[in-house]
Design a protein around this nucleic acid. Structure first.
Lengths: 307, 307
DNA sequence: TCTTCTTACGCTCGGCGTAAGTATC
DNA sequence: GATACTTACGCCGAGCGTAAGAAGA
């Protein structure tokens, strides 16, 4: 189970071709063939069907492990490098589109910061592998709970903000005048599922337990990270969206002529008691400007936990 | 970062000796020296101080990663083997001392089962590496939440039981006549911390959030897995213990002469709303008798989640 | 001086590339 | 017959052991 063989295997599986994988990895086709053969012999199982090249059931199992394994290997390497070498000059912050807000943005130093907006799921990996020094992730959670993050490596997690969640609706929606909404009021509604721009429905499900997730299906899935687009889609009646309240309030004023067609309204979500939580991630070893920034952002809310 | 080098490194670190590690691994001392040198060169950092042999800060970081990494490597190998080879004849069930109860015990087939009681933290690893086909873990959690388990590999988790938690007190304790107890009533009490026999205080802390864990310190730590001993210790006044209610009720009847010195009483814990939860673990691939047993144990409570 | 890690050196085997072979479309 | 994976084979280098060297206790 040499990592090299593993890497070759995942590449072959991804590209569904020995020769393509060889090209990508800088080997000859022959070497790739030998890698796969060695791996199959070592594990005592056929991992791939040839012609067409596709993982066998056993190969599927291996694929589930191989990715995290290689990621963690890289994370280990990065962590050692960080704790041994001198800190790199710059500072990279990986964040989701909705996690970086005034409070945290104000803490950023004037120069030398690289900001990097990534999908929610990739932030822990970026921090673990050293691609970013710090990470900001947001998501839904039960009031006191930490976020459920994929744990690629032991990362330090600190809550930096917690706020209520609102539903963004078209101004013309029958429920738009309500002071608060329960999820139960909205079971029949059409939803926008926008995992990277707002709060995905899946997160709501996860935070609240399976109970709350009875029967709502997303009407439209938006994979971009741009909030403006999401608001426009809501205004156009394509569905409702879930947003942290402060963001929802800011965004809701829109509309073609300030209240005309396309206008949206934010109504607090009261029923499943969930909050929008923002957490700061960093690896165990943080030095130099990153450490200072982490302290600044965490402020007094430093409920440090070690995942 | 060859796994062999990693394995050598953790062995050297554990034994604090190159020569000892060589003996244990079946290498010559020279080879071990070369392994460490190769690893240090690859990572560009000194991992160990020599004379005495001890990990450097960078080496400490690596150690944190190396264990899980090697474990997961083995888990991957086991999973592939399971999904490819024919199922082994026997069936091994790994369980904590308090997780196996009537309902689950009744489901066990008459023959061919190996039962294996392990500390709570080792069960997921045993299941992931294939040392056990199924695992039973118990612990405290908020009412609907799953248990927080160390995730060594993707395991399938199914809740099999949930019940209230009780405090076991000496019959002579001033609070022993109460119908229910809040944790706040007991902040000044002396506690037994018995992670493998009952419910550890740390679990209570984790399940309820940091809030509940104000100021109670364990008076005595019991590392064994035997419930009888724990009850005896409580009866002797060494401290209170936390147990799932049904177990606490069974155990509480004791006492030297049924109510005399050493008798204990179980009082339900009402205040932090936590439950004692038992979960069944298995890897993605379960076949043969293990699959049947898993279905039996899970019954209708099969709230399958994938960690 | 003894123990323990490091370095030197030679041998063997693993792993890669070239090239021929084979199977499938 | 063309494409794509496998096998044969030779070469080079990685990695192990033996043995000599260096550095603490």
């Amino acid at each position: 189970m040499d990592p090299h063989l593993l890497r070759t295997y995942v590449t072959v599986a991804r590209l569904a071709s020995f020769s393509e994988a060889a090209r990508e990895l800088g080997y000859t086709q022959s070497a790739v063939s030998q890698h796969i053969a060695a791996l199959e012999q070592d594990l005592g199982a056929t991992l791939l069907t040839r012609r067409p090249v596709a993982p066998t059931p056993a190969g599927e199992r291996l694929l589930e492990h191989a990715g995290p394994l290689l990621l963690r290997l890289e994370a280990a390497r990065a962590e050692v490098a960080r704790s041994a070498g001198e800190p790199a000059p710059g500072l990279t912050l990986a964040t989701t589109a909705t996690a970086l807000r005034r409070r945290t943005a104000d803490a950023l130093p004037a120069t030398g910061v690289t900001l990097c907006v990534l999908p929610r799921a990739e932030i822990p990996a970026a921090v673990a592998t050293g691609a970013a020094d710090l990470g900001l992730v947001d998501g839904l959670a039960a009031p006191t709970d930490p976020l459920r993050l994929p744990d690629v490596a032991p990362l330090t997690v600190r809550g930096v903000a917690e706020e209520p969640v609102s539903v963004l609706l078209p101004a013309a929606h029958p429920l738009a005048r309500r002071a608060g909404l329960r999820l139960g009021d909205l079971v029949d509604a059409r939803w926008l599922d926008a995992p990277d721009a707002g709060v995905s429905l899946e997160q709501l499900r996860a935070a609240h337990g399976s109970a709350g997730a009875v029967g709502f299906r997303p009407a439209l899935r938006y994979e971009g990270g741009d909030l403006r687009t999401l608001v426009t889609l809501v205004g156009a009646g394509h569905g409702l969206a879930l947003l942290p309240s402060s963001l929802a309030a800011e965004s809701a004023v829109g509309g073609v002529a300030g209240g005309g067609a396309g206008a949206t309204v934010a109504v607090p979500l009261t029923a499943p008691r969930v909050v929008h939580r923002t957490e700061l991630l960093h690896s165990g070893v943080v030095r130099g400007p990153a450490a200072a920034l982490a302290e600044l952002m965490a402020g007094e809310r430093g409920d440090v936990t070690r995942s």
